[in-house]
Design a protein around this nucleic acid. Structure first.
Lengths: 192, 192
DNA sequence: CGCCGTTTTGAGCCTAGTCAATGTACGTGG
DNA sequence: CCACGTACATTGACTAGGCTCAAAACGGCG
């Protein structure tokens, strides 16, 4: 399946017909409160499996951050796939467990870290997943996505990034999504 | 295995020799930052399975809230158990997915809810799991556990509970762990 | 009765939020 | 080609919800 920017894969409450694996691009999965407050629980990148549920309905929504492509697996075939293909079963199981690990790590961030620590953790984690040891990190999402992922406001995200830039922790072009990680060890210091 | 109050099942970094199912009592699983800040990611009650990991090390710690008993499964036997026993496999899989669902719900709480909303959600959820429709809810944990679960301080937990009591949402004996849920619908109103 | 761990309450402060304005990039059409 | 509109990002001034520090109250137990 090919997806364009902001295209919805499924919404909270939809029947769980399919689950997905990201091929290219990035997906945000999120939950909403009645009044519109949003929490993005994860960004799924190439290789990640997501959208698998216990029940008959999706418990969160998923949208493409930009152009993206995914493989859709029929949920009804899950039992058969698991039965017949031990390698696939392991992939599903370890992927689900990895999602759980990420969630636990993220709860620590949301519940107990300061804004600075949140952003340091976020940048290092994303760099690790996207650009490895490269200095240049191109964010696939906008500030509001980062804010709703870290439990902050866009203003605080922006202010904290400029503060990092002023302290020489990162390099920042104005209004841009590319960040130069010129001092990872200092970021690591903030990332308890 | 029988556990007494505050007894440690395993700590972050321990080898993943076993994973567990709660038989009686309750378990807290948590992560720590270097300076001691703690985030309790879940309370596991009777029936819950936890402590299963992708890697060779536990990514969080687990302790008994009070007297508790658990079944320990050897992790090395997991592959065999999954292979041979489809029912057990489904139990593991759906239990892991349920832990993930809870984690996602909890990230929404940690990132986007106010102190009042956090406590309303927490009380209703715990009541649902512990006492069903009964009015009387006996908390298995102390205030500091609640605080570290909800991303608050003990003072805020205490203040918010007395505030609920003054508004007639709950009944509260001083310095006690038992709470009378005399107005669930009002709590539900706070629980977006 | 006195000690200790836990909970509650109070006063003041600070981090992050709110509201508002400005700046920047980019696409569209005259 | 440039003026304009729109979406996104940045910055500023002020506010407030929850935190910190401190003290008092409560309950259980030796």
């Amino acid at each position: 399946m090919a997806l364009s920017k902001d295209e919805e894969l499924f919404a909270e409450g939809d029947d769980t017909e399919y689950f997905y694996q990201v091929v290219s691009g990035a997906i945000r999965s999120y939950k909403l409160l009645k009044d519109g407050r949003r929490q993005i629980d994860a960004f799924h990148l190439s290789g990640d499996i997501f959208g698998l549920e216990v029940g008959a309905e999706h418990r969160f929504s998923a949208e493409a951050l930009g152009n993206a492509s995914v493989i859709a697996y029929r949920r009804s075939r899950l039992t058969a796939l698991i039965q017949d293909d031990p390698a696939f079963r392991d992939k599903i199981m370890s992927s689900t467990l990895r999602n759980l690990e990420r969630a636990q790590e993220h709860m620590l961030l949301l519940g107990r870290k300061t804004a600075q620590e949140k952003l340091a953790t976020f940048l290092l984690d994303l760099a690790h997943r996207i650009c490895g040891e490269d200095e240049q990190l191109d964010l696939p999402m906008q500030r509001s996505d980062i804010a709703d992922h870290l439990g902050l406001t866009i203003e605080t995200v922006s202010r904290t990034l400029t503060q990092f830039a002023r302290s020489g922790l990162i390099r920042l072009q104005p209004a841009s999504r590319s960040i130069g990680l010129c001092n990872r060890s200092a970021l690591q210091g903030l990332n308890h």
